[in-house]
Design a protein around this nucleic acid. Structure first.
Length: 651
RNA sequence: GCUCACAUAGCUCAGUAGGCAGAGCGCAUCCUUGGUAAGGAUGAGGUCACCGGUUCGAUUCCGGUUGUGAGCUCCA
C-alpha cells in the first residue's frame, strides 16, 4: 500500500517525512537527541501517530480517530493533573487514564474538591492548553524515576514504580513543570487539546480495592473537535431525558417508596398493565415451547439454602433469617432449589426429559445500599426464570430452543442489536471449577454448538464461566448505544450434584440430569426500566397503558365520544375518553405528554359521519377514518405487536 | 458498604446573610363550548425529610438518622 509523505511536528518544529523513514531519521532531521518519541503527522490531531518506537518505521497509524482520541484524552488527564497540582500543591497524584468517552484522574486530597473547584481547574487547564507545551517522553532508569517521584513526594507513583519489573527502563512524560509516570501514548503538545470538559467529582478506591484509601476522582471528557464534544454532551442530555426514573414518575408507571424501603418497587396501574402485557406474552410463548409454568414459595428453611450452597457463598447478599417455631427461614434469593425440589418430588424417567419449569419468580437480594439504582438494580425483583432438566445428549437442542426464544423476545421488543458472549472456563485454572473435566467439555461445546447452529456471532470469554458451569450471556443495545445484560443461559453442573438429582435411564440405572438455568428478559423490573429508556416512554401500541384517547371538540360531542369509547373498548382496546372541561388543544397536549399512541378527535363532522379524526403521537394528524376501520387497524397493530403505526403508512 | 453532594406543596424549583415560606405546573370550583401541543377567574395544598444540639427564636447554623443522586466496590 502506498503511503503519502507527511509532515511531522514536534512542538513548533515541522518537517516533511518520506514514507519508510524511521524514527531515528526523524530525530536526526529534527536535531533532537533526547528521548522525544511523540510526534503528530500533518498537523492534524486525527492523523497522529499513537506511538513510535526508536527503531520502528514511521507511519501514521491508520489515521485512527479512536487511537487519537485515546492519546488526546490521556494527555487531557495529564493536563488535569497539572492544573490540580498548580492550584492545590499539596495534592498527591493517583492514576489518570483515558477511558471510554473520556478520562479521569485520581487525587489524594486533605479536603475534597467542591463543584466550584471544577470550574477553577477547568480554567487552569485551558491556560495549560494555551501554553501549548510539548509533551515529552523520557526513558529513565528505575532508580532515577524513584528518585524523581520521591523528590516530588508522590507516594502512589512510587508504589506503582516498585511494582514494575526490575531492569526495564521506565517512561515518564513531561509537559512544562509537570512530570508523570506513564506508558503513553500522548499527543505532541498540550495545544492539541481543543475540546474538553470536566464533568463530575466522585470518590474511588486506590487501585479499585475497597480496603485501600479512597481518593477523589475527577471525570472529564475530550474530543478532537468541538462538534464531537457537543455531540457527546447532547447524548448525555438525551440519556437524562430517557432516564426511566424520571419517565416512570412522569408517566405514573412505578415508584419506590421511602416509607416502604429502598430497592422495592411499587407498580402503579399503568406500569402494572405494561408488566401484565409482557407477562402474558411470556407465559404464552413458554407454553408454546413446552415449558410447564409453576409457582413456588417466597421463603424456605435455611437448611435448603445450606444444601444449595447459597448460604455459604452468598450469605451477605441475603436478607437475614427469620425464626418461626424455632426454625430459621430465608427469603428466597433465587428459584432454583424450589424447582429442583419439585423435580425430585417423584422418580423421573428418561422418557420425561427434558422437563422445563418456568416461573415468574420474585426473589429478594440484599444489595448494598450504594448499588441500588432506580428499577435497574433493586432488592426485590421478579425473574422470568426457568430450569430445564435434561440428558447430556439433549443439552444442545435445549440450548438452541432457549436461544430461539431469546431471539424471538428481543425481536418482539425491538432490540435489533445484541452481542452473545460465551463464558467458558479459564483453561489455566481448571481447579477453580467444580465438576468433571469431560462434562465441562461437553457443556462448553454444547453451548458453542447451539450458537453456531443459530448462526449467532459470539465472543468467547475465557474465565467468565461460573464456578458451577459455562454460560451464554446476551447483551442488548438500546437506542442510545448502551449495552444491557438480558438473556443468560447457564449450564449448571453443581446443583444436581448437591441435591442428588437423578432420573432413571433406559438401562434402569440412576443418572444425573444436566440442569440449565436461564432467564430471557432478566427481571421484570430491570427489563421494563430498559424498555422505558429504549422507547423513551413511547411504548409500542401493544404495550401502551392507554392506547387511544378520545377527544371531543366540544361538549356537544360527549355522547358520540362515549359511543366511540365503548365501541373501541368492546374491540379490546384500552381507551381513555377525555370529557374534562378543557379545550381540545389542551387535551391533545395532555395526551401527547402521556405518549398515548392514538388521539381520536371527534367534532360535529365526525359525529355526523360516524368517523374519527386520527392523530398519532409521532405522525400527527392522519385524517378521518371510519370508526370500524380505525378499530380493526389499531387492533391488528396491537395484536401483531407491531413496533410502528399501521395507520401512518395507510394515509 | 465507601467518598462527595442533595432533601422546601403531588411535580419542577425559587427563597430566608436565623424572625412562624413563594412561583409555575398539577388539583378543586366557576366562567368559557372550542377543530389538532397550554382560554380565563377563584381556591385548597407545606411540622421546609426525621431526631437531637446551639440560640430569645432554626426551614436556614452544627451533629446524627433515613432516603436520593454521581461515582467506587459489589451484582449468585
Amino acid at each position: 500500500m502506498d503511503r503519502p509523505a507527511f509532515k511531522v511536528t514536534w512542538g513548533n518544529d515541522c518537517i516533511d517525512v518520506q514514507p519508510g523513514s524511521t524514527f531515528l531519521d526523524v530525530k536526526k532531521q529534527l536535531g533532537w537527541d533526547d528521548g522525544v518519541l511523540m510526534v503528530s503527522a500533518n498537523g492534524q490531531p486525527r492523523e497522529l501517530m499513537a506511538k513510535i518506537e526508536e527503531d520502528c518505521e514511521i507511519a501514521p497509524l491508520g489515521f485512527d480517530d479512536e487511537k487519537a482520541r485515546w492519546a488526546l484524552r490521556h494527555t487531557a488527564a495529564h493536563v488535569l493533573a497539572q492544573a490540580v497540582k498548580r492550584l492545590f500543591p499539596g495534592v498527591r497524584l493517583g492514576i489518570g487514564p483515558a477511558i471510554e468517552d473520556g478520562f479521569y484522574y485520581d487525587f489524594d486530597t486533605k479536603s475534597p474538591f467542591v463543584p466550584e473547584d471544577l470550574i477553577k481547574i477547568e480554567e487552569e487547564m485551558q491556560r495549560i492548553v494555551n501554553e501549548n507545551m510539548p509533551v515529552v517522553r523520557q526513558e529513565v532508569l528505575r532508580e532515577q524515576s524513584l528518585d524523581m517521584f520521591r523528590k516530588s513526594n508522590e507516594p502512589f507513583k512510587l508504589e506503582l514504580i516498585r511494582e514494575l519489573p526490575e531492569g526495564e527502563s521506565i517512561s515518564v512524560y513531561k509537559q512544562g513543570e509537570f512530570v508523570d509516570l506513564c506508558a503513553g501514548p500522548h499527543v505532541p503538545s498540550t495545544g492539541h487539546i481543543k475540546a474538553f470538559k470536566l464533568l463530575t467529582i466522585a470518590g474511588a478506591y486506590w487501585r479499585g480495592d475497597e480496603n485501600l484509601p479512597m481518593l477523589q476522582r475527577i471525570y472529564g471528557t475530550a474530543y478532537l473537535t468541538q462538534e464531537q464534544l457537543q455531540e457527546h454532551l447532547d447524548r448525555l442530555e438525551e440519556i437524562k431525558k430517557r432516564d426511566h426514573r424520571k419517565l416512570a414518575r412522569e408517566l405514573d408507571l412505578f415508584s419506590i417508596q421511602e416509607e416502604g424501603g429502598p430497592g422495592l418497587v411499587y407498580w402503579h396501574p399503568k406500569g402494572a398493565l405494561i408488566r401484565e402485557c409482557i407477562e402474558n406474552l411470556w407465559r404464552q410463548e413458554h407454553r408454546k415451547r413446552g415449558y410447564q409454568l409453576v409457582y413456588s414459595p417466597h421463603i424456605a428453611k435455611l437448611d435448603l439454602w445450606k444444601t444449595s450452597g447459597h448460604w455459604d457463598w452468598y450469605r451477605d447478599s441475603m436478607y437475614a433469617p427469620m425464626v418461626v417455631e424455632d426454625v430459621e427461614y430465608l427469603l428466597k434469593p433465587m428459584n432454583c432449589p424450589f424447582h429442583i425440589l419439585m423435580f425430585k418430588n417423584q422418580t423421573r424417567s428418561y422418557r420425561e426429559l427434558p422437563i422445563r419449569y418456568g416461573e415468574l419468580g420474585t426473589v429478594y437480594r440484599y444489595e448494598r445500599s450504594g448499588a441500588l439504582h432506580g428499577a435497574l438494580r433493586v432488592r426485590g425483583f421478579t425473574q422470568d426464570d426457568a430450569h430445564i432438566f435434561c440428558r447430556l445428549d439433549q443439552l444442545e437442542d435445549e440450548l438452541v430452543g432457549v436461544l430461539e426464544l431469546a431471539q424471538f423476545m428481543l425481536k418482539t421488543f425491538g432490540y435489533d442489536e445484541y452481542h452473545c458472549m460465551l463464558s467458558v472456563r479459564n483453561p489455566e485454572d481448571k481447579a477453580k471449577y467444580i465438576g468433571d473435566d469431560d462434562v465441562w467439555v461437553v457443556a462448553e461445546s454444547a453451548l458453542e454448538g447451539a450458537l453456531k447452529r443459530k448462526g449467532l456471532p459470539y465472543r468467547v470469554d475465557p474465565g467468565e464461566a461460573k464456578f458451577y458451569g459455562p454460560a451464554i450471556d446476551i447483551k442488548v443495545m438500546d437506542a442510545v448505544g448502551r449495552l444491557w445484560q438480558g438473556t443468560t443461559i447457564q449450564v449448571d453442573l453443581n446443583l444436581p450434584e448437591r441435591f442428588d438429582v437423578s432420573y432413571v435411564g433406559e438401562d434402569g440405572e440412576k443418572h444425573r440430569p444436566v440442569m440449565i438455568h436461564r432467564t430471557v428478559l432478566g427481571a421484570m423490573e430491570r427489563f421494563i426500566a430498559g424498555l422505558v429508556e429504549l422507547y423513551a416512554g413511547a411504548f409500542p401500541l401493544w404495550l401502551s397503558p392507554v392506547q387511544v384517547a378520545v377527544i371531543p371538540v366540544s361538549e356537544k360531542q360527549h355522547a358520540y365520544a362515549r359511543e366511540v369509547e365503548s365501541y373501541l373498548a368492546e374491540a379490546g382496546l384500552r381507551v381513555l375518553c377525555d370529557l374534562d372541561n378543557e379545550k381540545m388543544s389542551y387535551k391533545i397536549r395532555q395526551a401527547q405528554l402521556n405518549k398515548i399512541p392514538y388521539m381520536l378527535v371527534v367534532g360535529g363532522r365526525e359525529a355526523g359521519e360516524k368517523t374519527v379524526s386520527v392523530r398519532h403521537r409521532t405522525y400527527g394528524d392522519l385524517g378521518a377514518f371510519e370508526l370500524a376501520d380505525f378499530a380493526s387497524a389499531a387492533k391488528r397493530e396491537a395484536e401483531e405487536k407491531l413496533l410502528d403505526s399501521v395507520l401512518a403508512s395507510v394515509s
